[in-house]
Simulated assay, not measured.
Amino acid sequence: MSGLLNVASSPHIRAKDTTSKIMLYVIIGLMPASMFGIYNFGFNALLLIILTIGACVITEYAYNLLLHKKNTIADLSAVVTGLLLALNLPPTATWWMAVLGGIFAIVIVKMAFGGLGQNFMNPALGARCFLLISFTGRMTTFTYDQVTGATPLAIIKGGSLDVNTADMFWGRIPGTIGETSVAAILIGAIFLVFMEVIDLKIPAAYLGSFLIFIILFSGYGFDKTYIVAQLCGGGLMLGAFFMATDYVTSPITPKGKIVYGILLGIFTGIFRLFGGSAEGVSYAIIFSNLLVPLIEKATLPKAFGKRGGLR
């Protein structure tokens, strides 16, 4: 009986790394943005991070216990979901929003579809969009230095370029807990690339197509301030490196990753330029997640020596 094969859910990685090890790398990669968010926004940011992680882990444990399933919290995916959700919350969010979002992410988006490897969209972003739709006012109110004000993207959406791009890069702006500091996000992203947890196909295609889109359709052309502000503003960098690259909800084919990234860039551009909101990364990633099966079907390599289709 020792020769029985161990069947597990996707993603399947041909390496010594386990799912829990990969998730640990992602957690480490998110630490710079998390620590900066706590430094930037104070105790409530730390509280929201603890609450969302706790809600996700406890919910997954309880779900498995009630349905007599194997305990899966040791793979750390619930921790990653909770941390990503917290980093996408405004620092003024209430404790019950954090808990409700964590429960929704695990029960509705993840476990209801079979758990890790079978969810059809990123659980953290699914929960964030649920909270955005349900509590729009609370989710779109941001403060910095105890002053409530518009984010740089909202200022640009209003027709002004009176934004400080250096502050946007370093994180001295209002926004969600983990999205404000591009510098901190890039430090974590470099770590993940170095550890070979992610490659650059999806982020490069995403950012490149988004850049081309805003140059062509924004009306600002090659205006340096506008371009840098759009790249550094909102959740673009956090989404490109930490959520669009999710193994479960992104394509596995090389060409598919590029197509997926291009779609992300186009959707984000459409939402930001022509939508009612200044942001659009969350919805762009979710919509693209839904198209992943079609992308993989269209970009699946054909077996050598065979033609496409049946004869």
Rank of each mutant, 00 (worst) to 15 (best):
S2W: 05
V7R: 07
S9A: 15
R14V: 11
K16L: 14
K16M: 14
T18L: 13
K21Y: 14
M23N: 10
L24F: 12
L24N: 02
Y25N: 12
I28S: 05
G29I: 04
A33K: 08
S34A: 15
Y39F: 15
F41K: 05
N44M: 15
L51Q: 11
I53R: 08
G54W: 03
A55L: 05
C56Y: 09
V57G: 05
L66T: 03
H68E: 14
K69G: 03
T72Q: 14
T72L: 15
I73C: 06
L76G: 00
A78E: 06
T81R: 06
L85P: 01
A86L: 13
L89I: 06
P91R: 12
W95L: 06
W96Q: 09
M97H: 09
A98S: 13
V99F: 07
G101T: 04
F104D: 00
I106S: 00
V107W: 12
V107F: 08
I108R: 01
A112P: 12
G115L: 08
L116H: 00
Q118T: 05
Q118Y: 12
N119A: 08
F120R: 03
P123N: 04
G126Q: 03
G126F: 08
I133F: 12
F135Q: 07
T136F: 10
R138P: 08
T140A: 10
T141C: 02
T141A: 02
Y144N: 02
G149L: 14
G149D: 05
T151S: 14
L153C: 09
W170C: 01
R172L: 14
P174M: 07
P174W: 07
T176C: 13
I177G: 12
V182A: 15
A184P: 07
L186C: 13
G188N: 10
G188M: 02
G188V: 04
I190G: 07
V193Q: 01
V197L: 02
V197Y: 00
I198H: 09
I198A: 13
K201M: 09
I202N: 11
A204M: 15
L207Y: 10
L207W: 13
G208S: 15
L211R: 09
I212A: 15
F217E: 05
G219V: 07
G221Q: 13
F222C: 05
F222H: 10
T225C: 00
I227W: 03
I227G: 07
V228N: 02
G233L: 13
G233S: 13
G235A: 14
L236W: 07
F241D: 04
F242T: 05
T245S: 09
Y247N: 03
Y247F: 08
T249F: 03
T249Y: 00
P254F: 02
K257T: 02
Y260L: 01
Y260G: 01
Y260I: 00
G261H: 09
I262T: 14
L264P: 00
T268M: 10
I270E: 04
I270W: 08
V281S: 00
V281R: 01
Y283F: 15
Y283L: 13
S288R: 06
N289I: 11
N289R: 03
L290F: 14
L294C: 01
L294M: 10
E296C: 08
A298Y: 06
K302H: 07
A303N: 08
A303K: 13
R307T: 04
R307I: 01
R307K: 15
R307C: 01
L310D: 14
